[in-house]
Amino acid sequence: MSNPAQRANKLFVQTFGTLADTLYFAPGRVNLIGEHTDYNDGFVLPAAINFHTIIAIKRREDSQFRAVSDAFPGEMKEWTFGEEGNRPESPEWADYLKGFSSAMAISGLATKGMDLAIVSNVPLGAGLSSSAALEIAFGTAINDANQIQLSPLAIAQLAQRGENHYVGCACGIMDQMISALGQQDHALLIDCLDLDSEAVSIPENLSLIIINSNVKRGLVESEYNLRREQCEQVAAHFQLDSLRHLELADLEAAKDQLSDANYRRAKHVITENRRTQNAAWALESGNISQLSTLMAESHISMRDDFEITVPEIDFLVEIVSSVIGEKGGVRMTGGGFGGCVVALVDHELTDAVVEIVEQQYLDKTGIEATIYLCSASDGAKRLDN
């Protein structure tokens, strides 16, 4: 099969009858540790992955956008810059693009329109942030083609704003930042309070494995927003802006004043922030046994305190852990309620991990897992056409 860049060029010519000016790409991502901490102004440790969204574009002289995607053949979406309309009741793929252009307009930034052809190999619905890859590829294209000179961080902030206010998902900044700022062979420790980031090298002897449980993810958005509300309720109880500023000792002292669910949600976030910072140090220094322990503790916290895992995910973590021991780490990754498991595994154990998943997961669950052997990728950029 032709590569995504060739497919994007071909789709553009087939749709618009002319050659594209330029191509832009942005990666999906996997979060190594630091789950549901980003919207609590905490720490996350994601890596961009070598699955990408590529957009072929041609600038227009008016304010019209026309977009097609190979994932939704036969659909052309059109809108005018600054006239994106109200928040959609049921968001579609193009609403992530409209969200970005709407956020630009509200911020007082101007742009010409574009014709767009979109091709992606970021798996949809797997929790690998196909939406952020789409937003950031589009934002990078608008910024570069119109010479607006926004920084990658500013593009990420506009994309988050669009998703929050136009699409209606109360996501944090992590997905957009790592897609915009990723570095090859590195994870990125992001402080979601001040948006500082620090590249953390991934040791050469570790394989990055993502295992999609292929559990159909139900109620993800409503449960995600509920978790965010619960965290905000605890912060408000302590008269704080976010859980970032709450100490575990203070939470424990006020345990009787909170609902059990809210107490456990806050406990997860506070302890996950510590684990994430410690995991970045462990990864950078090659202390894989400590990384293994921290990822295991993270999974238990997501399972018991934040309550976002499902039995199939727990089983995947259990069987992978039985193979790798302290020679790697494994945990659920993403928003929860299905989706993926991430594992950092010593190269020599990669085949054994694949083998045990293929042997046991289908027998146990009746579902076939999808296994992706990945590498940490660069963030969004223009491609030479």
Rank of each mutant, 00 (worst) to 15 (best):
P4R: 00
N9K: 14
F16H: 03
F16L: 07
G17H: 01
D21E: 13
A26R: 01
E35C: 05
N40Y: 04
D41V: 13
L45E: 06
P46I: 00
P46T: 02
A47N: 03
N50D: 15
I54W: 01
R60S: 03
Q64G: 10
S69T: 15
S69Y: 06
A71P: 06
F72N: 08
G74W: 09
E75T: 15
K77V: 15
W79M: 04
W79N: 04
T80Q: 00
E83K: 00
R87Q: 15
P91I: 08
E92N: 15
A94E: 14
D95P: 13
Y96R: 07
K98H: 10
M104F: 10
L109C: 08
A110Y: 02
K112A: 10
K112C: 11
V119R: 00
L124H: 07
G125M: 00
L128V: 07
S130G: 04
S131Q: 08
S131A: 11
F138L: 09
G139D: 02
T140V: 10
A141G: 06
I142W: 03
A145S: 13
N146I: 06
L150P: 07
A156Y: 07
N164F: 10
Y166A: 01
A170T: 13
M174S: 01
M174V: 14
Q176T: 13
I178M: 08
I178L: 09
G182S: 05
Q184N: 09
D185K: 01
L189C: 04
D196M: 12
V200W: 10
P203L: 01
L206Q: 06
L206F: 08
L208H: 07
I210V: 15
I211K: 02
N212R: 03
K216H: 11
R217C: 06
L219Y: 11
V220T: 15
S222D: 15
L226W: 08
R228W: 02
Q230E: 11
E232D: 11
A235G: 07
A235S: 09
Q239P: 06
L240Q: 04
R244V: 14
D250C: 06
D250P: 09
K255P: 09
D256C: 10
R264E: 02
R265G: 04
A266Q: 03
A266G: 02
H268C: 05
T271Q: 15
E272A: 03
N273G: 12
N278G: 09
A282E: 06
A282F: 08
I288L: 05
I288D: 11
T293E: 10
E297L: 12
D304G: 11
D305E: 11
F306R: 11
L316G: 09
V317G: 04
V317N: 00
V320E: 07
K327R: 14
G329K: 00
C340Q: 01
C340A: 05
V341Q: 00
V342W: 07
D346N: 12
E348T: 15
T350F: 05
E358L: 08
Q360M: 05
T365D: 09
T365V: 13
G366F: 12
Y372C: 09
C374I: 03
C374N: 04
D384I: 10
